[in-house]
Design a binder for these strands. Structure first.
Length: 591
RNA sequence: GCGCCCGUAGCUCAAUUGGAUAGAGCAUCUGACUACGAAUCAGAAGGCUGGAGGUUCGAGUCCUUCCGGGCGCGCCA
C-alpha cells in the first residue's frame, strides 16, 4: 500500500467530479499532478500541486481550483483536513488510522514492503565488465556496487532485471597480456633473467609488469612445460596464452565479485561474438539501413596526433543520432574497432528482447557515451535506449591522507584489499553514499569509525538498538509473542505520540522512495533515506530517555508496549528492506 | 579548440526531479546518562545556491553566456 498513490487517486477522483459538474473542462492531462509529502511536515501529511498544474489548461486561477478541490477532498475518505497554502498547494492531513495501518502492513509484508507492482518490463544492466587483464581495483568496485545495487533496486521496483558482464577478451589488450605472460613464463623457466624481464618492460616491449602474472606463468609452466618457450612466431602461442590468462583472470574476477556479494546472471564473451560472426552481422544490419559508408575523418581538434594522416575507413553515421562525428568501425589494417564489436554486443542484447539498457562505465569513458547511444538507437529504430552511468573516481584516503596509487609500480589498491580491510558491507554501503557522477572519498579510518559521521555505522546502530529492545522485552513480559505475525495484531491505535507517528510516516515514504530511485537510476538515494530513518529512530529513542512515559517498554501497560514494539520492529524491517537493496546484512548487535 | 560531468554553510554533502521559509553531518558554542545501548539525542550559530541574463504562477534544478574545476577527444579497450 502506497499512501501517496492512494491520495493521488483521491485527487484524480475529485478532479473527475469537478469535470462532471462542469466546473472544469474535460480532457485535462493529470500526468504532472502529484501527491507527495510536503517538504516541511508542518504543512501536513500529503500535498498536491493539482490546482497549479491545471490552472492554465482549465483557464482558471490556481486558487479558485484549489478551493473547489479542498471542498471535495475534505469529504474524501481518510482525509481529516484540507487547506490551501502558498500559490495553490492543497495540503491534507490524514487520520492517524491510516498511518497505523501502514505499520500493520509493514509487519505483515516484511522486507518485501516497498516492492513495486510487477511491471514485467525487462531491463538489462551491464556493469563491471573489467578487462580480464589484471586484478580488480577500487574503481571497478564502485561500478560493481552501484550496478549491483541498481539492479536490486530495479528488481524491487518490479522490473525484470538481467545483470550482465561483458568480457573484453578479443581486443589488443588481451594480446598484450598474453605477451607479458609469455615473458613471465620465460622468466619462470629460467630462459631469461629478471633484468631481461625488466628491460622488456622498460622498452615497452611488454606493457604489464605486475607481479600478479607470476603465479599465472607458473601455472602455465606446470601445465605445458616448455612447450611455448622456443616458438619464435608469436601467432602460435598468443591464442593459447591469451585463453589461459583470460580464464585465470575471469576466475579471479568472479571470486572477487563473490566476495563483494555481486552476482551476474550472464557473462558475454566478446571473442565468442566475434567468432560467431556477430560483428559482421551487426554491420550488415547497419549497412542494410544505409548507416555505414567509407570515408575520411577530420583530424581531432586541438590535439592532433603526430602521426596523423587521413585514411579512408568504414564509418558509422553516428551524427544521424546526435553524435558529433561519424565513428570508425574498421581499423586501417582491416580489423574491427572495439566500437564495432560493441555494436554487435548491443545488437545481441536487443535481439534478446531488451530495449531498456543501463551501462555502468568509468568516468574515463565519458567520450564514448554518445556513440553508444547512437548505435542503440540505430539498432532499435529509435525505440530502444541506453542510459550510461559514469562512475567518478574513488579517492582512497587514510585519516584524510591520500593513499598513493601507481599502476606502474604495482601499488594500486585492489578490490580484495578493500574488502579485507573493512569488510564487504562497509565497502558496499560507502560506495553508495554518493551520486555515481560525483567523486567519492573512501577513507579507511572514517568508514570503520563508530560515529554519526559514518553512515554505515549509524544505520546499523539504529537496527541493533531496536533488536536490543526485543532482547529485553521477554524479561518484562514473559511469554510475549514477538513474531511479526504476533506484533501485527497489536492495538496500533495506542501509537499517538507525534514522534511515533512521524516515524511511521517516514516508513510510509519507503515505497515511493523505491519507485523514484529506481526510475531515476539513483540507488544512492536509498542511503540518504536510511540515514534519515535511522536519525528519526534515534530521536524517538532519546525521547524515552528524556521522558520515561515515552519508553518503548512500559511494565504496567502491556498493550502499549506491544504496540511500540511493533513500531520498533517496523523500523527494523524497513531498514533491513533498504539494506537488502544494497546487499548489506542488518546487524543484531554491535558490541 | 570541441564534447561530457561538476560548482550549494568554513569543510564533506542533501534538496521528493520545476514547488512553499534551500536541509543534514563535521568543526564551534550550550544542554541531556545510577541507561529499553549517551557509539546517541536536544538546541544555537552558520547562505546573494560561482557571476550575469532569460523561460513561468514558481528556478539550486530548465535555456543562453561568462568564470572556475574534473574527464575525454582517429586505427586503446
Amino acid at each position: 500500500m502506497n499512501i501517496f498513490a492512494i491520495v493521488k487517486s483521491r485527487v484524480d477522483a475529485a478532479v473527475a467530479e469537478l469535470v462532471a459538474e462542469g466546473q472544469l473542462p474535460a480532457g485535462l492531462d493529470l500526468e504532472r499532478v502529484a501527491a507527495e509529502p510536503p517538504r516541511d511536515p508542518s504543512h501536513g501529511d500529503v500535498t498536491t500541486n493539482a490546482a497549479m498544474i491545471l490552472a492554465k489548461p482549465a483557464g482558471k486561477p490556481p486558487k479558485a481550483i484549489a478551493e473547489m478541490l479542498v471542498a471535495k477532498l475534505k469529504a474524501a475518505p481518510d482525509v481529516v483536513e484540507a487547506s490551501i497554502a502558498g500559490p495553490g498547494f492543497v495540503n491534507m492531513k490524514l487520520k492517524d488510522g491510516i498511518w497505523q495501518d501502514v505499520l500493520k502492513d509493514v509487519l505483515t509484508i516484511g522486507t518485501a514492503y516497498g516492492n513495486g507492482a510487477d511491471k514485467k518490463h525487462p531491463i538489462n544492466v551491464e556493469y563491471v565488465s573489467a578487462n580480464p587483464t589484471g586484478p580488480m581495483h577500487v574503481g571497478h568496485a564502485r561500478g560493481a556496487v552501484v550496478g549491483d545495487a541498481l539492479a536490486r533496486l530495479l528488481a524491487k521496483a518490479g522490473f525484470a532485471v538481467t545483470k550482465e558482464y561483458y568480457i573484453n577478451d578479443a581486443g589488443g589488450q588481451v594480446d598484450n597480456v598474453a605477451r607479458a605472460l609469455h615473458k613471465r613464463y620465460l622468466q619462470t623457466l629460467g630462459r631469461i633473467t629478471d633484468a631481461e624481464f625488466q628491460a622488456a618492460l622498460e622498452s615497452k616491449e611488454i606493457q604489464y609488469g605486475g607481479d600478479y602474472l607470476v603465479p599465472v606463468a607458473e601455472a602455465l609452466a606446470k601445465r605445458d612445460g616448455d612447450k611455448w618457450a622456443d616458438a619464435s612466431d608469436e601467432t602460435t602461442w598468443i591464442p593459447p596464452l591469451r585463453a589461459f590468462t583470460v580464464e585465470w583472470m575471469m576466475r579471479q574476477v568472479k571470486e572477487d565479485l563473490t566476495a563483494l556479494g555481486v552476482q551476474h546472471d550472464i557473462f558475454v564473451s566478446e571473442k565468442a561474438l566475434v567468432d560467431a560472426g556477430k560483428v559482421q552481422d551487426a554491420l550488415d544490419y547497419l549497412t542494410k539501413h544505409g548507416l555505414t559508408y567509407t570515408g575520411v575523418l577530420e583530424p581531432p581538434k586541438g590535439k592532433t596526433p603526430e602521426d596523423w594522416e587521413p585514411r579512408p575507413q568504414l564509418l558509422f553515421k553516428a551524427t544521424q543520432f546526435g553524435d558529433e562525428i561519424d565513428r570508425p568501425l574498421q581499423k586501417s589494417n582491416g580489423s574491427w574497432t572495439y566500437f564495432a564489436s560493441d555494436i554487435a554486443y548491443h545488437k545481441d542484447k536487443v535481439d534478446r528482447g531488451f530495449t531498456d539498457l543501463v551501462n555502468l562505465f568509468g568516468a574515463d569513458h565519458g567520450g564514448y557515451v554518445k556513440r553508444l547511444q547512437a548505435a542503440v538507437k540505430a539498432l532499435t529504430e529509435g525505440k530502444g535506449q541506453v542510459d550510461v552511468l559514469l562512475c567518478q573516481m574513488v579517492r582512497v584516503l587514510n585519516n584524510g591522507e591520500p593513499v598513493k596509487m601507481s599502476k606502474r609500480a604495482g601499488t594500486f589498491i585492489t578490490l580484495r584489499d578493500l574488502i579485507d580491510a573493512v569488510g564487504k558491507d562497509v565497502v558496499r554501503f560507502i560506495m553508495l553514499t554518493r551520486k555515481n557522477d560525483a567523486p567519492l572519498d573512501f577513507d579507511y579510518a572514517k568508514v570503520t569509525e563508530k560515529s554519526r559521521e559514518n553512515p554505515v555505522f549509524y544505520v546499523q546502530y539504529a537496527h541493533a538498538r531496536g533488536r536490543s529492545v526485543f532482547r529485553h522485552a521477554p524479561e518484562m513480559f514473559p511469554g510475549i509473542d514477538l513474531s511479526d505475525a504476533g506484533l501485527a495484531k497489536a492495538n496500533f491505535a495506542r501509537l499517538t505520540d507525534p514522534e511515533e507517528l512521524a516515524t511511521i510516516k517516514m516508513m510510509a515514504a519507503w515505497p515511493r522512495m523505491v519507485e523514484g530511485a529506481a526510475v531515476a537510476h539513483e540507488p544512492h538515494r536509498v542511503a540518504f533515506y536510511l540515514y534519515d530513518l535511522a536519525s528519526q529512530f534515534h530521536a524517538l529513542w532519546n525521547k524515552g530517555n528524556d521522558a520515561a512515559a515515552l519508553r518503548f517498554l512500559q511494565a504496567e501497560d502491556k498493550e502499549l508496549s506491544t504496540a511500540r514494539l511493533a513500531l520498533v520492529r517496523g523500523v527494523g524491517v524497513v531498514i533491513a528492506s533498504g539494506l537488502a537493496v544494497f546487499g548489506v546484512e542488518p546487524v543484531e548487535e554491535m558490541r
